[in-house]
Amino acid sequence: MSETPNGGELAYSDSQLRAILRSVRTIAMVGISPRWNRPSFFAMKYLQTKGYRVVPVNPGAAGQAILGETCYAALREVPGGIDMVDVFRDAEAAGAVVDEAIALRHDKGIQVVWMQLGIRNDAAAARATAAGLTVIMDRCPKIEYGRLHAELSWGGFNSRIISSRRRRAQIL
């Protein structure tokens, strides 16, 4: 699904993904759909249950409430800080979103730009990395959170995690 002329295989270590998912609290989700059966809506709802604040960004739904949060037309209109920008746009449109995140990184405190599963824009990633941002591409934070917390395994999936350590039971 990746677009050329991107480079080779993307590899992110479990410890890097775990560190990101532990450190961020507020996620701006750009390109979120207000329709309940869209993948972005699924991801927002899941991340909310895991304790993240998710701020929806979509000009087509600006002013609407999505899952209890007001939707904004652009990143710059989001009041308050943003730790991570999660991009639910195609690879080409993702470039402009990444550039906006770079421009706002000091004002908003943005540390991470995360492009969704199937989305890869190596040029935009290089600009963000040069500006000091951490970049993840072609992954879904919901799936990675579920994988790293053994929830993905409940669905019969290969988490690739082998460990004999006893995990702390989560009482939700």
Partner: peptide
Amino acid sequence: IHAGAAPEPV
């Protein structure tokens, strides 16, 4: 031996 079978957390 190990894939899928981490210790039961509770």
